[in-house]
Nucleic acid binder design. Structure first.
Lengths: 221, 221
DNA sequence: GCAAAAGTGTTCTAGGTACACCCATGT
DNA sequence: ACATGGGTGTACCTAGAACACTTTTGC
């Protein structure tokens, strides 16, 4: 047991894990097996250990639920309404992560709780204020697409410009002009053309590009 | 005494209070009177009460230290390195506030601790990781000048375009072209010209403008 | 009449948008 | 040969940058 002179809130991290699957922007949710909100879907997350850095905690949760590491993770917002958890005062520091679609076979690494991907546009009822958290993450992600290279984080090391364009179109939910898109992306000088091409069906093979600074999200504009 | 099965961190809020004084961007700091860092300068802040919303806590700290309320306040970032406070684990949710320069006579409302304004470019040694917090706040403020009307929050209800331009110049630390600045600001349609003018010295009086949505920060661009 | 800040227009450039056809491949 | 997605160029428009003089006031 741990005692304090003044009451202390509990602190958790919750992570909005985004990926692109089946041409949709999806979020990872887990089914709660304990009260409160037993049986309800919720963001993966948990209590911050007393000697653990907050971001390290988010990374750990991400690793436990998806088996992935080395992916983009950024602090989002801290939610702390006094009544957001019925048990005790819980303040949650939220993060969002972007997982490349070729990494997500590893989802079995989850700790046996049912972890499932949901379309962002078709979410179930969520525990706590997790609907707010996801809404905030979506807003941030959409904004960040416009002034940075975050979109690269959804894709493997090498990708085609059409794949990149699809990422933008799916997240922003609008079609983009192919010529303008390609010119703009290349004009930033943040993509290097490789000599490789991929044959992907009954049509001309597409050139692969790779980020100049893989893993790093650069500002554009 | 309060006891928990698992150890809980303490949670504080710290507020970076910005104002423009003497043609400089300044931050409010208080001198610490208790360990750790006794005698050191620090951001105003304190522990979150167990039933208090986090933003309400930041507002309360702001009120206690400056006597001001109804000013712009926005969550900044949550800092929680395990060793950032030598006493116990403390996670701090930071905010930044913008105070109009005509409100800051009220600084005597402070709870007797020495609260003083410092130039952002000439800060003393700071307690904890408060230098990082201020650096983060400055970055956010500069970014936000570019795509929103935050700058209005430094000024009284009515102000001249020259005053507004000075706010931009002081924060961005660069001179701006008067004609381009005025055209751009007016083009957003977020400022209403009043019929009033201020005589301010041996020169032509300047027209006063007021925000279309006072208190609200709008996005531009 | 002079000092001092307020106020005002035009030109140029760069980046964004709109838009239609040929190319390389598999079947 | 045809279906499929890959790849390319030009004209237009708008927003931002550069730049200098007249106006109104106080002394």
């Amino acid at each position: 047991m741990y005692t304090y002179e003044h009451p202390h809130p509990a602190v958790t991290t919750d992570v909005v894990v985004f990926t692109i699957r089946d041409e949709r922007l999806q979020v990872l949710l887990v089914k709660r097996r304990n009260p409160p909100f037993t049986g309800c879907w919720a963001l993966p997350g948990g209590f911050v250990n007393i000697d653990e850095d907050i971001e390290a905690c988010a990374l750990r949760e991400l690793q436990e639920e998806t088996g992935v590491s080395g992916v983009f993770l950024e602090q989002l917002y801290t939610f702390g309404a006094p009544d957001r958890d019925p048990r005790e005062r819980v303040i949650t520091v939220t993060y969002y992560a972007l997982v490349p679609h070729d990494h997500i076979r590893i989802e079995a690494a989850s700790d046996a709780s049912a972890a499932t991907w949901f379309d962002c546009t078709d979410l179930p009822a969520l525990a706590f204020d997790h609907d707010q958290v996801i809404a905030t993450a979506l807003k941030r992600l959409r904004a960040k697409l416009q002034y940075s290279t975050v979109a690269f984080q959804f894709l493997p090391d090498k990708f085609t410009l059409s794949e990149l364009q699809r990422v933008y179109e799916i997240i922003l939910d609008q079609t983009l002009d192919k010529r303008n898109f390609r010119r703009r992306m290349l004009s930033y000088g943040l993509l290097a053309a490789t000599e490789e091409k991929v044959r992907n069906g009954n049509h001309r093979p597409a050139r692969l590009y790779r980020p100049q600074t893989p893993g790093r999200v650069e500002f554009i504009k």
